Amino acid sequence: MFKLFSPKRKDIQYGWFGNYASWHEAAASAGGYDSGNILQKTKDALLQVKNGTAVYERDSVVFEHIEYPFPLISCLLRSAALLKRPLNILDFGGSLGSTYYQVKDFVGTDCCASWNIVEQEHYVNCGKANFEDDHLKFYHSIDHCLLDTKIDLILLSGSVQYMPAPHDLLKKVAAYNFGFIVFDRTAFHDGLYDRLTLQTVPPEIYEASYPSWFFNKEGFLNHFKSNYNIICELPPFVEGESVISIDHQPLGYNKGFYLLNQSFNA
């Protein structure tokens, strides 16, 4: 998940900082997303949601009121309507089901036939042990998922910017030729090149820092121009997430895209 906490005061040392030359250089200063404390907090929060003692979780924090991601929900509903059947969804980097639990009651089984999460090994193990059922599944890779399920739509929500080689992933996603691609909560900036920063999470959330990319939009979307049409851009669903400060300056922004395969006859 994309941790959107952008400080405004210059004495606060969390948020996004730096302009690193390589992933290795940034990672040397980071305490990454694979930390056990993050998994445990996320597990505890989502078990509350699953068991009905909380209604909504985001970035391991539980809330009393759910915030529906209506831009994303619109993409899911439109895709199911175009196919005239429920979708098999692959959620790349979907944690233990944060987005699944956020949207499942709203979209229902008429829209979503299955929700398949691809994550790091320890998340997959935890997911299989605590959350997996007939509808929600966990996999170590896209290829492992495709062995079980023919995927209609791939969702990448706040995950691409945390990959060591994000453009390799984007090329791979384009090559799978899925019918629909949704990028949500993805970080961009107006520079000519991608920028690599170090993100530090507020300690009240959890203790962690990790490398985080801000993409040049044109370079990001170039991977899909030969076989996809951009149907629309997705605004952030939470107020205040549009602008992201880097080194305390409003240089980044958060948005998404809904892509339709050109071979799809709608």
Rank of each mutant, 00 (worst) to 15 (best):
Y101K: 03
V49Q: 13
D148N: 15
I246N: 14
L39W: 05
V62I: 09
A26E: 08
K137L: 04
C126S: 11
G31W: 15
W16V: 05
V62N: 04
G127E: 04
S245W: 13
E25T: 14
I231V: 13
K43W: 09
F215R: 05
S29I: 09
K255C: 15
F215Q: 05
L221E: 07
M1R: 06
V61N: 00
E64H: 07
D133T: 11
L146Y: 06
R85I: 02
K225L: 13
D91L: 12
S157L: 03
F17N: 06
D168W: 00
E204L: 08
G15S: 06
E57W: 04
Y20L: 07
Q13G: 05
N88M: 13
K217M: 14
Q120P: 02
L87Y: 01
Q48T: 08
T197E: 09
A30E: 10
S159M: 03
E121A: 15
T42A: 04
F215V: 08
P203I: 07
F5D: 09
A187P: 00
G15N: 06
L96H: 04
A113C: 06
T200K: 15
D110W: 01
I151E: 11
I117H: 11
E132T: 15
A21P: 03
L146R: 12
V173Y: 07
Y162Q: 00
G158M: 02
L82C: 10
F92G: 11
I244N: 07
I154T: 06
S6H: 08
G31L: 15
I230K: 13
G97E: 01
G256K: 08
Y56T: 01
F138G: 03
I38S: 05
G179Y: 04
K137F: 13
Q102V: 02
P202M: 07
H189Q: 06
Y228H: 08
P211G: 04
A54L: 08
P164E: 09
T53S: 15
P86A: 01
Y206V: 14
S79Q: 02
A45F: 12
K128L: 12
S141H: 05
F17R: 10
L39C: 06
N216V: 12
D34A: 14
V61E: 00
N265W: 02
H144T: 12
Y206M: 15
F237G: 02
N51W: 04
K150I: 12
H144K: 13
